[in-house]
Every structure is written in structure tokens, then in C-alpha cells.
Write a protein that binds this DNA or RNA. Structure first.
Length: 485
RNA sequence: GGCUCGGUGGUCAAGAGGUUAAGACACUGCCCUUUCACGGCGGUAACACGGGUUCGAUUCCCGUCCGAGUCACCA
């Protein structure tokens, strides 16, 4: 790194709306990666200037999500730094001062129009505010202010010319100034709009790289005009391609509550591992030089480069996320996985590590677990038709013989281990001159009551233990004999 | 509608002025097998369209079409 270069500082600036959706989190991730890959700082700032949308407890959710995702910030509301406070509602005075400074230097003006008036003055094409107050004479402004009229402060846009800037990802962007509205900087409740606060804060917090979704691409010239009006240096922009969701009608739109409905916490609830979500979203809009797809956060930090960020949007794919989740699950030791699935187990009467082992290759979302293993805790009522299997050639008659013989041999087993159980079953098959799978099938049905189970017959017997296994097989036998068990 | 951006299989996504246009997910065939998975080996499937530039364009340029974003006292 060039020693003359400023230390990189990026920020994640969410609104406390009660949840963090995946698109936001990806912005946070990239901001983190950009800073950390070059030894920079990552800052958290809460943008709570919309008093109408405040959600109680929402700040905590932000902290929790970042913690789970392991995106550690160097400065934030709960981690004081040099440029606080890091919550916008606590910076009201700063914005106020800056807005007035802008009025003094001609970059902004008071507007006394009512919201309702403006709505009427808009033409059919929604061209925005008609700039009625832009040239109010000073005395009138003074009078209005003194009489306590509500006001708003608007940015004074150049009426002609163009504004361009260079984005790290999208390169040169040019917008006609005539497209720019005299947007509101300070609202009538004294709070700044995002458009104003983000510029003030990014500058005052020494943010060097503004990383955000490209929905902000076309409003960036407005911000640059603000920087210019203050005489401030414009930061580097890294606008990210949008993450899209598929709607039920097949159309594709920006990921939101309506489309795709993915919040980070929701995915966790669903049973996706936090590190998997991070790994997956890193690959939505970026990829490394190689074909490798599994990366830890610190590996991503080493590999990340803004040069490889794509411009085109990506659709969020649950299926691929599920695949990745399963890859991670398979890579864990049974003991590690047992720890993770603890909360999904009904009780601890059965060995969690053994259960973990049979689940690892079969689970893509943790939330699938209870249904997969319910039979362990309580065997469901099942029909004896389940004993009929074409492929293993089992039917009521031979099932009866199989179970009787298996029961006898299993009872003999002293050390109840998977290997021992497995070999015993093979011996039964040999003795009866039947396929292994015939014996396996009948036993598995007997102890699980299901045609599809995680794990095979011997693993299940191993988990259930000798007493429970024998008991279940006896019950099955009775059922086959027509005696109600 | 104006403005801005984008367009490689269904999805993610490499790629390069000349390639048999990678890889992954999904789908699918076979093998393995103790059901289902896992694993192994295969398969189907893509450069939106039309003009240029060029010996040669999917790659560069222009137009068309399609898609998305934005146009709030939301961020």
C-alpha cells in the first residue's frame, strides 16, 4: 500500500427499520471487505432521521446481525471513535448548522411551501418541485421566519450544464443538471433527509469509499454538488449491482419485503448458517479469479477486489444457498454439527453425535431436521403395506420370517455398535438366502415407520439402542401377525 | 414517460478480436448403495436482435428490443 494514501474508511449506514435485508447486508459485506482488504476501518452509522419509520429495538437487531455475520466495525454507536456520534438523530445540530451555512453561501434556500401545495403544482410527469421559493426576496424570508412559518431547506441546483463523476464499478456517469430537483435537505421537523445527512456524515467521518447499492447511482450527482458547495473532497464511489428477487408472477425486482422477502434473520431462522449467507452473498455480483466457491470471511478479505465487481444485477437463489449450506454442514465434524443441531433435538435420550452424523449429508437447511428425525423420539403409526418393497423383494410373508430371524440374532448382540449390527444383519441375509437390502428394509420400516429415513437400518438401530430397537421390531412383528401391538 | 445502468444456458458466473464458449447450482442418465442422501462418471442447455469496424466478432461502435433502477419532508 502506498504510504501517502489516506487510510481507507468505509461505512455501513442502515436505517433501523427492524430488519436487515440481504441486499443491505451485501453492501455491508463489500464495504467491510474493501476496508479490511487494505487495512482500513469499517464504520457503522445508524440513519434514523425518518421519525415516522422508527421501529423500537431495531438498532439492536442491526448489532446482532453484524455480530452474527462477524462483520466487526471499528467505530459505531456502541463503539465510540473520533467522529461520533454515530447515530444521525444525535447529530441534528450539525446538520442544522451545515444547512444554514449552505444558505449563506448560496447553495440552498428556505422554502415555505406546503407539501400539499406542491403535490398540486406537479405536472403530469411528476416533474417535482416548481422552485417557487428559490428566489424569494430576503425580507420576505425574514418575515416568514419571524412569524414562525414552517420551512424546509432546499438544495439550489444548477439550472443548466451537466454533472459527471467516475464510479469504481460503473465508470463514467453523466447527468444533466436539468434532471436534478431542488431537493429537500432539512425537513420541517428539523431532521435532515438522507440526501443531506449522508453527505455531511461521510465527509465529517472521513469516509473515503462510499459503498452502496446502485439505486443511488443517479442521485449521486446531487451529493457531489453538495460536496462542491462546501468545498469538500468527493469520496470514491463503489456502487453495487442490485440483488434481485423473483416475484410470484415470475417478474424480477429489487430484493425487498415484497419480492423475495429475505431478511438475514429470517434466513437464520430457516436454518442457514451465518457464515454461509455471508459466503453466498459475496458471490452475488463478484467472484474471485479461480473457480473456488467456499470462502471464509478472512479468505474473502484476502481475495476481494473491486475490479471484479460486476455491473449486472443478480437474482438471489435459495437453491444455491441451500447447496452451499449443505457443503458447510458436510465439512463440519459430527461433533461440531451435533452442537449446532442441539436446539432441534426433542430430548437428549439419544446420542446427538450419532444423529448429527446421519444428518450431515442430508440436511441443507437446519429447519428440516425435526421432521427428518421425529421417528427417533416417537415411532409414527404406520401401515404394514410399507413392508412391501419391489426392489428388495419383500412382502408380508417374508417380512415375517425376516423379522423373526433378525430379532433372534439381534438379541444375541452383546456390544451394540453399528458395525456389529450391520454384520449381524448380513449374516441373517445369508442364512435366509435373501438380499441384504431385504433384511435392511424390513428392519428399517419396523423401527422408523417410514420408507425414507436419514441413515440406514444399522445406524438407526445404533442410535435407538438395543432395548428400544428390539421393542420396536417386536411391535412390528405383532402387527404383521395381525395382533394389535 | 424522462434520465441512468444493464443483457453469456432456468440461476450464479468465467472468458476473450480467432476457444470444442470454463466452472457451480438446478434438471437429467448411469454407477455405487442399507431407504434417502453422499460420492464417482456422463448428458441437455447460453453469447437478445439488426447494422457497421475488421481477414475475422459473442467480445469494439451504432441502432432496436428487452430488463432493472430512479424521478418522496424514505433511505
Amino acid at each position: 500500500m502506498n504510504l501517502n494514501m489516506k487510510k481507507i474508511r468505509t461505512r455501513f449506514a442502515p436505517s433501523p427499520t427492524g430488519f436487515i435485508h440481504i441486499g443491505n447486508l451485501r453492501s455491508a459485506l463489500y464495504a467491510y471487505l474493501i476496508a479490511k482488504s487494505q487495512g482500513g476501518d469499517f464504520i457503522l452509522r445508524i440513519e434514523d432521521t425518518d421519525q415516522m419509520r422508527l421501529v423500537p429495538n431495531a438498532e439492536k437487531i442491526i448489532y446482532d446481525v453484524l455480530k452474527l455475520a462477524n462483520l466487526r466495525y471499528d467505530e459505531g454507536p456502541d463503539k465510540p471513535g473520533e467522529y461520533g456520534p454515530y447515530v444521525q438523530s444525535q447529530r441534528k445540530e450539525i446538520y442544522h448548522d451545515k444547512a444554514f451555512e449552505l444558505i449563506r453561501n448560496g447553495g440552498a434556500y428556505f422554502c415555505f411551501c406546503q407539501k400539499s401545495d406542491i403535490a398540486e403544482s406537479k405536472d403530469k410527469l411528476h416533474r417535482g418541485y416548481d422552485r417557487k421559493c428559490r428566489n424569494l426576496d430576503e425580507n420576505q424570508v425574514k418575515k416568514n421566519l419571524e412569524s414562525g412559518m414552517k420551512f424546509v431547506i432546499r438544495q439550489k441546483m444548477p439550472l443548466e450544464g451537466k454533472t459527471s463523476f467516475t464510479d469504481t464499478v460503473f465508470e463514467q456517469i453523466t447527468i444533466d443538471n436539468s434532471e436534478l430537483e431542488d431537493g429537500i435537505l432539512l425537513k420541517s421537523d428539523g431532521m435532515p433527509t438522507y440526501n443531506f445527512a449522508n453527505v455531511i456524515d461521510d465527509h465529517m467521518m472521513h469516509i473515503t469509499h462510499v459503498v452502496r447499492g446502485c439505486e443511488y447511482l443517479t442521485s449521486t450527482p446531487k451529493y457531489n454538488l453538495l460536496y462542491k458547495a462546501f468545498g469538500w473532497e468527493i469520496p470514491e464511489y463503489v456502487h453495487l449491482p442490485l440483488i434481485m428477487g423473483k416475484n410470484s408472477d415470475g417478474s424480477v425486482t429489487k430484493l425487498s419485503k415484497r419480492a423475495g422477502s429475505v431478511g438475514f434473520e429470517e434466513l437464520i431462522q430457516d436454518g442457514f448458517l451465518p457464515e454461509v449467507i455471508v459466503n453466498y452473498i459475496a458471490f452475488l455480483g463478484w467472484c474471485p479469479k479461480t473457480n473456488r466457491e467456499i470462502f471464509t470471511l478472512s479468505e474473502l478479505t484476502k481475495e476481494f477486489s473491486t475490479q471484479r465487481i460486476r455491473k449486472s444485477p443478480a437474482i438471489f437463489d435459495y437453491l444455491k444457498l441451500a447447496w452451499l449450506n449443505n457443503e458447510y454442514i458436510k465439512n463440519k465434524t459430527p461433533k461440531e454439527f451435533a452442537e449446532i443441531i442441539k436446539v432441534y433435538l426433542k430430548n437428549n435420550l439419544f446420542d446427538a453425535v450419532k444423529i448429527a452424523k446421519i444428518l450431515q449429508s442430508r440436511v441443507s437447511k437446519l429447519s428440516e431436521i425435526p421432521e427428518l428425525i421425529d421417528f427417533i423420539y416417537e415411532i409414527p403409526k404406520f401401515s404394514k403395506e410399507l413392508f412391501i418393497n419391489k426392489k428388495s423383494k419383500t412382502n408380508f410373508e417374508n417380512a415375517l420370517v425376516i423379522l423373526e430371524n433378525a430379532l433372534e440374532s439381534l438379541k444375541e448382540i452383546q456390544s451394540w455398535t453399528n458395525d456389529k449390527i450391520y454384520n449381524t444383519i448380513l449374516q441373517v441375509a445369508e442364512k435366509l438366502n435373501l438380499k441384504n437390502s431385504a433384511i435392511m428394509w424390513c428392519i428399517r420400516i419396523s423401527v422408523s415407520g417410514k420408507t425414507v429415513t436419514p441413515g440406514g437400518a444399522s445406524e438407526i438401530l445404533d442410535i435407538l439402542g438395543k432395548i428400544e430397537s428390539i421393542n420396536r421390531i417386536e411391535n412390528a412383528l405383532n402387527m404383521l401377525k395381525g395382533i394389535k401391538g
